[in-house]
Amino acid sequence: MPTEEKTPFDRRYIYIVLFVLISIPLLYPLNLPIPISPMSQDVWDATVALSPGDIVVHSFDFGPSTLPENEPQCSSHLFHCRELGLRVVAVAFWAAGGPLAHDIISEIYGEGYENTAAYGTEIVYIGYIPGAEVGMQTFGDSTWDAKGTDHYGTSLPDLALMQEVRSVADVTLWAEWTSGTPGEQQVIQFIQGRHQGENTDWPLVRGEHLLPIVAGSTAVSVPGMMPFYSAGQLVGILNGLAGAGEYEKLVNDVYPQYPYEQGPGLDAQSVAHILVILFVVIGNITWAISKSGGGKSS
């Protein structure tokens, strides 16, 4: 584990430098080109491969702390689903995700969407389902048993779309927006694993039809997802803010009415990354100098 050393100056100078430098691209964007990573492209490809009317579950399993990364991921994907004519069943297995999901869906489907004709046929928001992994398992086995009503108090059997979604076998794609547990690993374990082979429309993975799952998560969580991505259990991943920006760019290229807003944020991220590397280099130079001078390194 790296040993922490004292700085020869007040560390708040580092904070000021970082604050000033990341503020500049936020105020005056650099408009750096955004290369699309294969993982983001896979999310796009899995989504456009669906047919209008197919059912996509959007699971909002994150809290406010990671909203800047998760929100642009799920918003752009939700918009994409709406434009493709896909039908969406939204849930949240995090209590904190419940109200956030309502706000995000309202942005895409319009304020008061729960009172429109589209609600119940094109979109349903079930709301928070308690019980974490157990709640997920119950939802996968029997959607009506996981929660009696939607987020707005309407009985699930009274919604036309939910008449068609009795278990996860009726779902065509699962979009998991997460920043912890329960998250993509629990969906794989308690839903995908329990229902493999139940829908022949699902893609074949090692000889078995598997529910396709796309995920979006904070950059710090994505390394833990990679074994599942390389095994085909996750078909695509939006990796942190960069992944969100990439998907926004893909959506914006086809649907210009969807704003590409992550550019300044990614520019600021670029500046911050360069600054961190510079700090590492300067820190090592000063450490080497103090070491060669025979002084104590700290």
Binding site: P2, T7, Y15, P64, S65, P99, F279
Partner: peptide
């Protein structure tokens, strides 16, 4: 929830960026 808790939570989490920058200078040595 939307106007107080959400913003406080995001602020606390985003402070990590400053600690990472400081730690990069102090901790990562060859």
């Amino acid at each position: 929830y939307s106007n107080i808790y959400v913003h406080m939570d995001m602020t606390i989490f985003s402070l990590l960026a400053f600690f990472i920058a400081s730690a990069a200078y102090r901790a990562f040595r060859l």
